[in-house]
Amino acid sequence: MNSFITNNDGIVLKYVVGNDDFSIVGEVSSKIKNVLKQLNIDNKLIRRVSIATYEAEVNVAIHSLGGYIEVTITENEIKIKIRDNGPGIKDTKLAMEKGYSTASNKARELGFGAGMGLPNMKRCSDEFKIESKFGEYTELNMKFIK
């Protein structure tokens, strides 16, 4: 864990996610999942969060120049923010379409790049926002209601 902050409402966990090292993709999602399990959070909710954070982690590793995942856990909800250092998405509407992908051949060989990542995250979360500035960053915000 790269940072762990508690405040009156709950906790905020922040993890740095690198890019292009596929062998460790999933480690951060696993860590988040284990934290949620220790906190007695509903299993079905944990499952949704796990799938969404894993997809996000894959995206950061494959498409971005690196970034971070921030998880905020409070009594009523779990918020997940994923922000990368670019290169950003030209057309976020197109990126949200099922099957659309810009993944490299290297990623596809590993079974990624099916174009289902973002739609999957949207399906798993209760609220989903994507924001991107081409050449600068992409930021996803997901909310899961407990």
Partner: peptide, 13 residues
Amino acid sequence: KLDNDFNKAIKKM
């Protein structure tokens, strides 16, 4: 699980 009560679990964590 650290605690069945969420707030207590957070404090323990």
